[in-house]
Amino acid sequence: MAEVLVLAEHDSAGEVKKVTGELLTAARRLGEPSVVWTGPGAEAAKPRLAEYGAVKVYAADSADFGSYLVAPAAELLAQLVGEKSPAAVLVAGTTEGKEVAGRLAVKTGSGVLTDAVDVTPGDGGPVAQQPNFGGSITVRSIVRKGTPIIALRPGGVSAEPQAGPAEVEAVAFSATDAAKAARITERSPAEKGGRPDLTEAQVVVSGGRGTGSADGFGIIEQLADSLGAAVGASRAVVDAGWYPHQFQVGQTGKTVSPQLYVAVGISGAIQHRAGMQTSKTIVAINKDAEAPIFEIADFGVVGDLFKVVPQLLDEIAKHKGT
């Protein structure tokens, strides 16, 4: 069976990210997954990679990946594509993963499919499903040139464990001068609070301008915590400075597709819907019965959020008590 290269996503401490399990699960459908590991820590990560069926782990233990932006990872992948002739290369559909994919595509003359939420084998190679235009259409696409490069949106494919040997093989790699053009001189990792990641969460509770103020927005955090959810915000909230930009959901923010999306005090403008309308279940609370969010809600309450949400919090607490 042909090899499928999977670029592992891990943080600077070597912790394997959840999306890596999803990439391995998708790769198993297409061939034999080989993980490509950048930097130190491959041995420590081995058990996690084995859990999702990695056959091999190509470990390139070089400091260049941490010191220079994006280009070294693309160079390593291009080297491995040349040596192994894989059936496909899978990367995480994060901003950085997509940039690596883009550079690799140029180096290998290959097509890239970004934002895939599913991938299956087909006669002409892997077939990816990509939502487009804010989820209003879904496209099925393939790569017709070079080695198919597919960036999978985190949370698109669910990770299913399957044991694999995850045999670690050291790969000699040092970045060329061309790949050292953008030097990273400082890094401050994002603060990870206790809540799940917005793009990976099963439940998202988002607040809009209806919360009235940064203080008012606190009720959204309370509701999120009671449901074990991530917090999201509309652009109006972010623009007002009530909540940070990285939590913005919509066309110019994050795209989320959770099991449950609760929109509180959000009107549901087309640009907001673009980031959440593929959610499985949508609940809306808004005092304006005409708000467009109700058009896509599975359940809606027309009412004042400062009355409805506290009652909802009480009820959830009661459920937990029983």
């Binding site: 609940v283 809606g300 309450v301 027309v302 009412g303």
Partner: peptide, 17 residues
């Protein structure tokens, strides 16, 4: 979907859903 008007029971009905 089902859209209800809050008559003092909106939170409970959302919880019910």
């Amino acid at each position: 979907g089902v859209i209800v008007k809050d008559e003092g029971d909106g939170g409970s009905r959302a919880a019910g859903f």
